[in-house]
Design a binder for these strands. Structure first.
Length: 480
RNA sequence: GCCGCCGUAGCUCAGUGGUAGAGCAGCGGACUUUUAAUCCGUUGUGCGUUGGUUCGAAUCCAACCGGCGGCACCA
């Protein structure tokens, strides 16, 4: 036995478990049929006058949260997913044995309760117990009842304790579920079909990121966890599915931060015959609908739009398009009295300027569009401006949450972009994706003009629930 | 990976060099309208780990482990 198992707190609960069994009471029964959610049990009776009783019978179940009194009458608070209700236990109603046995129940035990609804003199809607059942014995004490659980490490490593003691945590994850189902409803209604593409891939692509690597024993082959669903989804567009979406986990072998978890949930959709502006319009409508579904005002207004170059110019006075080489741009930054970081090329320096000087200022939902081709290996060239692609990224609260473009469907251009990325990889860029011959093969059969987007669901959930770190919207976030 | 802050009982927290505390929870008792119930009594194999300094370390120092924030990487 470990030291922990000998501790008095746990031993007391163990002894109670044994005494229940000795009394012929099953501490872990199989089911408890006919339970009404607590909020539903309460709702019809909120109008009762103080002290008013009913003969309405209810059956509720949940976790014992608190207990008051223990003479001839006791009050107990019972929690379920929908709320909390007070139980009134009376010796004269339950009888000596059931009453006394109930008082030996521990906080944290799961209890089923039968009784009638009434409102106490103090105005608390309650259940006058006519009977009760232990549904599962709890062998460890729950977190403290009124401060809840605040220790972040315990909250994330043992999310079940966070969920049982902090209702606001439950709300975040219920909202997250509503967000996901609202997304599916919206896209299904607009003629998209949901698909599943491989998580385990022989070659990774569709984004600039380092992958997780694993090994397929039967084939003696290195495999990768996907960093994006993009390339497989566009192969489905080539195949004629025309409107597809996938909601699923991507994996990127990068650092942890308040905005980054190594596995995260991404929505991507692709639609034939559309360009980035069609996608932008649909994305705005989708996010507005999702916001309405969860009662958030965050995306009620139309999103602002700025060109990427314009956004840098307005914040820093620097014209990145008039300084189209690394040396020239570095010079312009020095002239402006700015620190010049050590970046390998012009595109990386532009990316730096955006992330340092523009992104933090984008609080209201904003699209930046017209990106440099060097930053966008899968986006179609801009119909008017050389060196740019038709792409936008969407931001809010200083954080990117979506990335979309007119999809590159010229197989020869795509081949050249892959070759450029392969050169970057050879020069030591670990996030440059490898050449994907199957993808080129697919494009050579002809992909219609297509618009596509990726939306980070964790970040969207952060925005819609007001959470400041991704760990608060992921049930079991990555920890050391 | 780097820098800073943090780690005390099941939980929430006091305690900054003199030998470990409170509240809740627990245990025993009183109480038929409580709701952070109250009252009386009572328990606690706990200072993240390992070293070091000191007559003496939760407290000072070092390394390590873990958490948080920032940087780097990235979405």
């Amino acid at each position: 036995m470990s030291e922990e198992e000998t501790s008095e707190l746990l031993a007391v609960r163990r002894r109670k478990l044994e005494s229940l069994r000795e009394a012929g009471i099953e501490p872990f029964p199989h089911a408890f049929a006919g339970v009404t959610p607590i909020a539903e049990a309460k709702a019809p009776h909120e109008g009762l006058a103080d002290g008013e009783e009913t003969d309405v019978r209810v059956r509720v179940a949940g976790r014992l949260h608190a207990r008051r009194g223990q003479g001839k009458m006791a009050f107990l608070d019972l929690d379920d997913r929908t709320g909390r209700i007070q139980l009134q236990a009376r010796r004269d109603v339950l009888g000596d044995e059931a009453f006394e046995r109930l008082l030996t129940m521990d906080l944290g035990d799961l209890i089923g309760a039968d009784g009638t609804i009434f409102k106490t003199r103090r105005g608390e809607l309650s259940v006058l117990l006519s009977g009760w059942t232990l549904l599962a014995k709890s062998l460890r004490p729950p977190p403290e009842k009124h401060h809840g659980l605040t220790d972040t490490e315990t909250r994330f490593r043992h999310r079940e304790l966070d969920l049982m003691s902090n209702p606001e945590t439950r709300e975040v994850f219920v909202t997250r579920a509503k967000i996901v189902s609202a997304i599916r409803r919206f896209l299904d209604d607009e003629g998209f079909i949901e698909v599943e593409t491989p998580v385990l891939q022989p070659i990774y692509g569709g984004a600039l990121a380092r992958p997780f690597t694993t090994h397929f024993n039967a084939l003696e082959k290195t495999m990768y966890l996907r960093i994006a669903t993009e390339l497989y989804l566009k192969r489905l567009i080539v195949g004629g599915l025309e409107r597809v979406y996938e909601l699923g986990k991507d994996f990127r072998n990068e650092g942890l931060s308040p905005k980054h978890n190594p596995e995260f949930t991404m929505l991507e959709w692709y639609e034939a015959y559309a360009d980035w502006e069609v996608v932008a319009e649909r994305a705005e409508r989708l996010v507005r609908a999702v916001g309405e579904a969860v009662g958030s005002e965050k995306f009620a207004q139309p999103w602002k739009r700025e060109t990427l170059a314009g956004s840098v110019h307005s914040r820093t006075g620097i014209d990145v398009l008039a300084n189209r080489s690394l040396e020239s741009l570095q010079g312009a930054m020095r002239e402006a009295g700015m620190e010049v970081p050590d970046e390998p090329n012009w595109a990386a320096l532009v990316d730096y300027l955006v992330s340092k000087h523009v992104e933090p200022t984008l609080i209201e939902p904003t699209m930046l569009h017209d990106y440099p081709v060097e930053l966008s290996p899968f986006a179609k060239r801009h119909r008017e401006h050389d060196g740019l692609v038709e792409r936008f990224e969407a931001f809010a609260d200083g954080m990117e949450f979506a990335n979309a473009f007119s999809e590159l469907n010229d197989p020869d251009d795509q081949r050249a972009r892959f070759e450029e990325q392969v050169r970057h990889a050879a020069a030591g860029d670990e996030s440059a994706p490898p050449f994907d011959t199957d993808y080129i093969f697919s494009l050579e059969h002809g992909m219609p003009p297509t618009g596509g987007i990726g939306i980070g669901i964790d970040r969207l959930t952060m925005l819609l629930t007001g959470q400041r770190t991704i760990r608060e919207v992921v049930l079991f976030p990555a920890l050391k």
